[in-house]
């Protein structure tokens, strides 16, 4: 499964991060209708369009003014998401990328382990901002297992992607405890969380960027 993956000591440069976010934008756009469908079941039916608008703004900003480092790339993308998305996912994803970008500093090349650590810092910031915990049926249920699988000696993008997918699927039987879906109580059970689903798309885009 991971034979085609880069070894953990590979270096990740700014073009890698541009490829990642561009691939994430394409994935979000491709799956926008599905994200909105999931959100119409337990939310307010705007997750796909919101994420598509936000990531389109990210792709445009990165093309117009390509940043000079991986950290600056994530910070610029996060800023775009915070200001353009228009729903709760904007501040949440924006915080994820900005905090990860800040953790990377000015380094021009980073290791996958550094990326894993930076994303972990971003995920922690998301948890703090939204006040959610694992099992609350949120994006954290995809992101936490993903950053776990990305780090360490056995870590890889494929493992992270798989963990995020599994985490998103695991939200189906969960009872929503945060966000609009939490108003539904028991009726939120049986639906996959839209935020966990879009998180899996974004993590999955890492494997495309590595090719």
């Amino acid at each position: 499964m991971s034979s085609s993956e880069p070894a953990v000591d590979d270096v990740l440069d700014t073009p890698f991060f541009l490829r990642w976010l561009t691939a994430a934008a394409a994935a979000v756009s491709r799956e926008a209708a599905r994200l909105t469908d999931l959100d119409s079941a337990i939310g307010d039916a705007d997750h796909g369009t919101n994420m598509q608008r936000g990531f389109a703004a990210v792709a445009e900003a990165l093309e117009k003014e390509p940043p000079g480092s991986p950290g600056a790339t994530l910070i610029l993308a996060g800023r775009q998401l915070i200001s353009k998305v228009g729903g709760a996912s904007g501040p949440l994803y924006g915080t994820l990328l900005r905090r990860a970008g800040k953790a990377l500093g000015d380094a021009e090349q980073i290791t996958p382990q550094q990326l894993a650590d930076a994303l972990r810092a971003g995920v922690d910031a998301v948890a703090q901002l939204g006040g959610a915990a694992p099992g609350d049926k949120t994006m954290l249920d995809a992101l936490l297992p993903a950053v776990e699988a990305l780090g360490g000696d056995a870590g890889s993008f494929a493992a992270a992607s798989e963990a995020a997918e599994k985490g998103a699927l695991a939200t189906v039987p969960m009872l929503a405890r945060k966000g609009r879906a939490s108003y539904l109580g028991e009726r939120s059970v049986g639906h996959q969380d839209p935020g966990a689903t879009s998180s899996a798309l974004i993590i999955g885009a890492l494997t495309e960027a590595a090719r």
Partner: peptide, 14 residues
């Protein structure tokens, strides 16, 4: 509610 709270918190964190 909801994203209004998160949006302001995120702006403050900036």
């Amino acid at each position: 509610l909801g994203s209004a709270v998160l949006a302001v918190k995120a702006l403050l964190a900036e």
